[in-house]
């Protein structure tokens, strides 16, 4: 199991479209991927869950991956956050 803090770098925060990118990316891995923010802990493979986090610009999300492809999943997700969700 590995975990890392990811920072939201796009101005608009995580709204529907970034959430769908995240969920799509997360679903392509076998590992269980969870996002934590404040007291919330949600499954990164679900769009509604990711939106519910209410992550605004510059907020930090604690990401935890565990499973056979955890390293790849974490790398892909951090890259996605750094690319500002392809926007």
């Amino acid at each position: 199991m590995i975990s890392r803090d990811l920072e939201v770098l796009n101005r608009a925060g995580i709204h529907a479209r970034p959430a769908s990118e995240i969920a799509k990316m997360a679903s392509s891995f076998k590992s269980d991927i969870f996002f934590e923010k404040e007291s919330m802990r949600i499954n990164a493979k679900s769009i509604m869950g990711v939106i519910t986090l209410g992550a605004t610009y510059r907020s930090k999300i604690h990401c935890t991956c565990s499973g056979p492809d955890e390293e790849e999943a974490m790398a892909a997700l951090s890259a996605l956050f750094e690319r500002r969700f392809e926007q």
């Binding site: 919330m40 769009i47 519910t52």
Partner: peptide, 16 residues
């Protein structure tokens, strides 16, 4: 979790 987003659903193929 959030009254603003409750009662919405994401269904694969339909969207939100």
């Amino acid at each position: 979790e959030n009254p603003m987003l409750a009662h919405h659903m994401e269904i694969r193929g339909l969207g939100i």
